[in-house]
Amino acid sequence: LVLSVPAEVTVIPLDMEGTTPPVAFLKDILFPYVEENVKEYLQTQWEEEACQQEVRLWRKQAEEDAQYACWQMDLDRKTTALKQLQGHMWSSAFAAGRRKAEFFADVVPAVRKRREVQTKVYIYSPTSVEAKKLLFRHSMQGDILELVVGHFDTKIGHKVESESYRKIGDSIGYSTKNVLLLTDVTQEARAAEGAAVHAAVVVRPSNTGLTDDKTCYSLITFFSELYLPPST
């Protein structure tokens, strides 16, 4: 199966959870790490500006924040404050070698191939920019951060809002018709298409099945099924 993409596409924003790294890696390894260590983090990092910034975002006492962060993760909330907290805690874990980022096997070869034909690859997910960079710097394939041109998070807008994709196009200097979003979330694909962005839904074997009508979207299972004509 091959999905042919219009030749006008020169920019590809990739989703994270369930599209590039497996959902299980985040939910079974990284998220529990934060829940298990958030109290210690707040106690030991309380005087640091990064920690104070997170606390100010929540506007709560440190003891309340520990419970609040876990509550947000349980509900899979994607607030900026939570994502910043996760990013700072993961940073120390990656730096100490306690964690390595796991990506689907097809991701790195496909991104390398796109770079060879001058396609610009970005990452767009609710995970903070800092946390995304950590994953690419500390992957099981080594430091692959250079493969990604840039990163976007919820500061530019939520992924289920069409305006967010217009802002991305404006910020990188490309028309939305030059952009192809790859995501495993149909609501995000719909929002992107609402901004005249091309979109394909990545149906990974380990992900939850699609709830929307599959005939409404272009579907791929692996990045290798995506055919883009070489850039000129």
Rank of each mutant, 00 (worst) to 15 (best):
L1C: 12
L1P: 13
S4Q: 14
P6L: 10
A7P: 00
E8H: 09
V9W: 09
T10L: 05
T10N: 08
T10R: 08
M16L: 12
E17V: 02
G18A: 02
G18K: 03
P22R: 01
E35P: 00
E36H: 08
V38F: 01
K39S: 12
E40Y: 01
Y41M: 10
L42P: 05
E49H: 03
E54F: 01
W58E: 11
A62H: 08
E64P: 00
D65E: 11
D74V: 05
D76T: 04
R77K: 14
T80H: 09
M89P: 09
A93C: 10
A93Q: 12
A93K: 12
F94P: 02
F94R: 05
A96K: 15
V107K: 05
P109K: 07
P109D: 03
A110R: 02
R112S: 01
K113V: 00
R114E: 05
R115D: 04
R115K: 04
Q118F: 00
Y122P: 00
Y124L: 05
T127D: 12
T127S: 15
S128K: 10
K132F: 01
L134V: 06
H138Y: 15
S139A: 12
G142E: 08
H151G: 00
H151C: 01
F152E: 04
D153K: 03
G157H: 02
H158A: 13
V160T: 14
E161K: 09
E163Q: 14
E163C: 03
S164V: 04
Y165F: 09
K167C: 05
I168H: 07
D170P: 00
S171N: 09
I172L: 07
I172V: 13
Y174W: 07
V179D: 06
L180D: 02
L181D: 06
T183G: 10
V185P: 06
T186K: 14
R190I: 13
A192Q: 07
A192W: 01
E193L: 07
A196E: 15
V197A: 10
H198I: 03
H198W: 06
A199Q: 11
V201S: 06
V202Y: 06
V203G: 02
P205F: 02
P205L: 06
D212G: 08
S218R: 12
L226D: 11
S231I: 09
S231T: 13
